[in-house]
Simulated assay, not measured.
Amino acid sequence: MQTSLNVNLSLSFYQLVELARQLPKKERAELASILMDDEPSKEQILKGLKEAIEEVNLAKKRKIKLKSAREFINEL
């Protein structure tokens, strides 16, 4: 039997962690999996590839200047 309850609560991060710790192990693992799932969708990957190809083409035409690997690393 599954029950649904919609509640709008304001909790601190600590309070949320404490509530999550009270969940059974299986549900706690499922919640962690959902919260950590940040893999891009197929559409996001294709959009990123398209933008990258457009940027490379613009650089080949000398319309933009790409950063060197060193400049890129220094930004991180």
Rank of each mutant, 00 (worst) to 15 (best):
K61D: 09
K61F: 03
E43Q: 03
N57C: 10
L76K: 10
L9F: 07
D38K: 09
N6K: 14
K61W: 01
L31Q: 01
K63E: 10
K67M: 14
N57T: 15
M1Q: 08
L23N: 11
Y14R: 14
I45Y: 07
E55D: 13
K67A: 13
L49T: 02
A32E: 08
A20H: 09
V7C: 02
L9C: 05
Q44P: 02
S41G: 12
A20V: 05
K50F: 00
R62F: 02
Q15K: 02
K42C: 04
E55F: 03
N6H: 13
V17M: 02
L16Y: 12
A29T: 15
A69M: 04
S68P: 05
S41H: 03
A29F: 14
M1N: 09
K26D: 02
L9S: 03
E51A: 04
L66P: 00
E51L: 05
E51K: 12
I64N: 03
L76H: 09
Q2W: 06
K26H: 11
V7M: 02
L5Q: 07
E27G: 09
E18P: 00
D38N: 05
N57K: 15
E71P: 11
T3H: 11
E55P: 01
R21F: 06
V56E: 13
E75T: 13
A59D: 02
N8P: 01
L46R: 02
Q15A: 00
L49F: 04
R21M: 05
F72A: 10
M1R: 12
K63G: 03
A69H: 05
K61P: 00
A69S: 11
A59Y: 04
E51N: 08
Y14D: 14
K42S: 04
K25P: 12
T3Q: 13
L49P: 00
S41C: 05
K61Q: 09
L76M: 14
G48I: 06
L11W: 15
M1C: 12
L5Y: 01
E75R: 14
L66C: 01
K26R: 12
R28I: 00
